[in-house]
Design a binder for these strands. Structure first.
Lengths: 352, 352
DNA sequence: GTGAAAGCGCTAACAA
DNA sequence: TTGTTAGCGCTTTCAC
């Protein structure tokens, strides 16, 4: 007796193939392929028959097969170091827009600021055959990335960037940004200015600190080493860094934080100490975020053109894919000072 | 005469193929394949020779070819409606983690709350052969998604969800969340409570409003229709909605906002009117965000388990992929009230 | 244990 | 203008 298992009462329709369409339309698969490639060598009549058949089978060309055959994909990856940081989210959105318009699919990966993960992911992306990757490198060692470049992986570096690497890159003018922040604070009457910096191994952190120090020198301002506190671009460290500054005997009247997350921590510290902004402590943050205007008082920031940064990077990637020989380019985007209330006038000296 | 074009002076190393490895190791391609599949049918010696050859050619199996051959991919997509919303970012991160651990690559797409784009993207994903997609649907019409389900695309709905759709889903207990917010405010002495809601066509918005109204009834509180203002989950509308409330003759003493972005707008409105929180206007927001503790005063919120939501969705997706026949599941996650200072005690009535 | 060979769905070169 | 066919790089029977 046959042991007849109950068969599924419904069956998952497998996607139609080019062969089925060809058969249904009574043409060869080459013709179907041509129709979908938009070739104008096909007669009106056949085009219509093919389209009709495709519609009724709801046929979509299989991208995997196409990719294998043509040896290229229309997939581009973006690899950031912290997907929950709104700065990177804006970058992703900017890049995603232009990539999608160019017909590319967006692969997203998150290195979590961990170079081991970054390495694995890069390997993965290569195997996946991505057309290119927009990368926020976890560290500054060119060696790390050399093998991928050699292997023909198209990389565009954003935000931070190893020197001596033959790739396209787009960064922000961090030095000038930090200088602008100092100048603004000086104009508000501040002379004692503190700085919360990120890990020095990351170029953005390093450059912002550098810009700060240069500006202090330019303005002939004293710089107490204790006024510069080291964070790591994360919220918790912004908090402790600001706490350290607040506990100083001789503390600055204003502080510049070098990224958005640390700004959040710093603000919390100020509030917890029941200090008023900007009277007791003025603050200028790096990165303009959606919440900056909703703070009390609204936050003065050095805005980074995150969106634009993503768009530029995507454009560079596209250009490179279309012309691998073109000269490498380094796009530097300017920051913008957005004055709100957290950096308000300082009269303390006069009052003293 | 031959028109000899100048050839490139350098050549991009093409990735090594299984054939080259086989040749170098002096084995058949089947053996190489077996080694990479971890088959234990291969002798020690050959395994080593293959590994050696692979290393020296830095060979990685071509995923595209593998996918074509096996008719499946290890790529999963997440499609959100606003990638710049931190809520979704957390979801993505949660999902990304478990997906990556399971060996999947994450494809990210952004429907921008636009159903036309959503449709195109879904079509794309199907052609791309993704193993499944975690989707925050743009609208509630099951019809819209039916064709994809029919075509065998594995979908897990998150956050919002069309009814009558045979799919897995994970949502948040919005009704209870809104009720909790009301109860908390009542405990703080508030009796006149306003609500800023989202577009009613989105189930989360609808449910939260519903929860609010039910709770008001339960607590026997009067509900002035003007106290409920309609927004659209975006910042700008949170601002105008709150402004509308603030301009009311008879205005509530506390307001609940039904998502994070609108909270930001509402806060800005309150600050611009020089009102104090919570004395002049108490506020409870939906969605707990990094900046909630850095506000002045810190914000009381109904926290959504965004991270967990992403993880659950990814888990459901994985389970479904491994066993397409399993019964569909609807996971409902609880919200959590996080009391900070923006919802503080209300003594106004006593003082009157 | 190992290898030969078929074939996944498609594109593109060539033939007709 | 249309069709035939080779083959992209891999996995997986099947035979030895």
């Amino acid at each position: 007796m046959v042991n007849k298992r109950k068969t599924r009462t419904f069956s998952i329709k497998k996607a139609a193939t080019i062969r089925q369409v060809a058969e249904m339309a009574g043409v060869s698969i080459a013709t179907v392929s041509r129709v979908f490639a938009g070739s104008d060598l096909v007669s009106h009549e056949l085009v219509e028959r093919v389209q009709e058949a495709s519609r009724s089978l709801s046929y979509q060309p299989n991208r995997i097969a196409r990719n294998l055959r043509t040896q290229k994909t229309h997939t581009a990856a973006v690899m950031v170091s912290d997907i929950e940081n709104p700065f990177f989210t804006s970058v992703i959105r900017g890049a995603g827009g232009v990539l999608r318009n160019a017909g590319y699919t967006l692969l997203l990966t998150n290195s979590d600021e961990n170079e081991q993960i970054e390495l694995e992911l890069l390997l993965n992306l290569r195997a996946e055959g991505v057309a290119g990757v927009i990368l926020a490198p976890t560290h500054e060692d060119a060696q790390h990335y050399e093998q991928f470049i050699q292997a023909g992986l198209v990389i565009v570096a954003i935000d931070r960037c190893p020197k001596d690497l033959k790739i396209d890159r787009v960064t922000v003018n961090n030095i000038e940004g930090a200088q602008t922040a100092v100048r603004h604070l000086v104009e508000q009457g501040h002379t004692k200015i503190g700085f919360i910096t990120g890990l020095p191994r990351i170029s953005t952190a390093y450059e912002r600190l550098q810009g700060f120090e240069q500006a202090m020198k330019i303005h002939n301002l004293p710089l107490n080493p204790q006024w510069v506190q080291q964070g790591d671009f994360r919220r918790e460290n912004g908090f402790t860094a600001m706490m350290n500054i607040l506990n100083l005997e001789d503390r600055p009247t204003a502080v510049i934080t070098s990224n958005n997350l640390m700004t959040l921590g710093a603000l919390q510290a100020i509030y917890e100490c029941k200090l008023r902004i900007p009277d007791d402590m003025a603050i200028v943050g790096f990165d303009d975020m959606a919440w900056a205007t909703s703070l009390n008082p609204p936050l003065t920031t050095i805005a980074q053109p995150a969106h634009e940064l993503g768009m530029s990077a995507a454009q560079l990637l596209l250009n490179r894919i279309n012309d691998p020989q073109r000269p490498y380019r380094h796009v530097i985007l300017d920051t913008q000072l957005i004055v709100r209330e957290s950096s308000g006038m300082h009269y303390a000296l006069e009052k003293d």
